[in-house]
Write a protein that binds this DNA or RNA. Structure first.
Lengths: 197, 197
DNA sequence: GTCTATACTGAGATAGAC
DNA sequence: GTCTATCTCAGTATAGAC
């Protein structure tokens, strides 16, 4: 009994490497199958389309990252109990895992950045990240009861933009913890801002 | 003496309309030339490629937006003299013009958002926006002397991310001034954050 | 069930006639 | 300056070998 689909993994590995390097739109299926040493139609057989292969690529590693996020959040909430976790801790739980993953497995996170940069992320978030997003929403609301819900939507939106932009192409080379400290400090102050007018 | 290149303008108008509606990658040259009523080869004659046509599209309207930004900044600096303009005013000068332009001429700013979203913006910024960016850097440094230069680079990066993400797809329908107030408040607090550690 | 060979359609780019 | 015709390469789809 051999691996039921070695081809499948070879395709995902090759796609990850090439797409991280060149971008998603710029990477053709023919490049990917050449790198993987398989036939073009295998893509269609295993995934159905280039887009569905991307979904599989994301699911393969986004799942673990989101689990770490939730575990961290749970821990920080326990540490702060009976108070809600402070906003900086909530942000750290959300931001640290992907930035650390970026160091451990740069290829995948580059692909994620490409997904944002090429406008493909919203549908993937909706498909695979929604539960995580909801949980963090609640934690932010608990940490900042003075921020109205409709303002919170915008602040989360700003956070996602800053995170995505930085994940894709940070302005310098610094270790993940330093980057996380910078972005948590910046966004934490933003989230805490008084809501005026 | 007729217009030296009516075709050129017809192409840009058609491209702007179609790309704003459908996205950039999703809009084919063949759609554009059909809409403009010209021949396919005219695109390559006038612009060289689809990408260079995009550049021309951006240049056509980015210039005015950047001029308004600089004029606003100059005015706010004069109002605050002899002190430097406060960071919220600097941010307003940078952010308000594109968001207002978004309302006046949604097509163009949607195209700009698409450029960010599809990862084409960095090269365009480098080509056409660099002088504006430099001027605002100086204003931010003046407003926030306690923020070290290397931290400022990151904070500007976060700001660009939040702005781009919001320009492309805001989480709700609100008038430009309201959106600008929200984002200025959020980012202003972030920029003012103490630099610790 | 898995995979290969091959064909189809539509994209952007280009050469050369006018 | 503009247009016709053509080229290359993309993603997708099908037929059929194993």
């Amino acid at each position: 009994m051999t691996a039921p689909s070695d081809t499948r993994h070879k395709l995902l590995d090759a796609a990850e490497r090439l797409m991280a390097e060149q971008g998603i739109a710029a990477t053709s299926l023919r490049q990917i199958i050449a790198e993987a040493g398989v036939n073009l139609a295998a893509v269609h057989y295993h995934f159905g389309s280039k887009e569905e292969m991307l979904d599989a690529l994301v699911i393969r590693k986004a799942g673990p990252v989101n689990e770490i996020r939730l575990a961290l959040l749970t821990r920080f909430e326990a540490e702060a109990a009976p108070n809600p976790a402070p906003v900086e801790k909530v942000l750290e739980a959300f931001l640290a895992p992907p930035f650390l993953e970026r160091e451990r497995s740069p290829l995948f996170v580059q692909v994620m950045g490409r997904l944002y940069a090429e406008g493909l992320m919203p549908s993937i978030v909706a498909k695979h990240f929604q539960p995580t997003v909801s949980r963090f929403y609640a934690a932010l609301q608990a940490a900042l009861p003075h921020v109205p819900a409709e303002e919170m939507v915008w602040r989360v939106h700003f956070m996602i933009g800053a995170m995505a932009h930085t994940m894709w192409g940070p302005p310098g080379q610094e270790s993940a913890p330093v980057v996380v400290r910078r972005i948590v400090q910046f966004l934490g102050a933003g989230f805490r801002a008084e809501v005026s007018e």
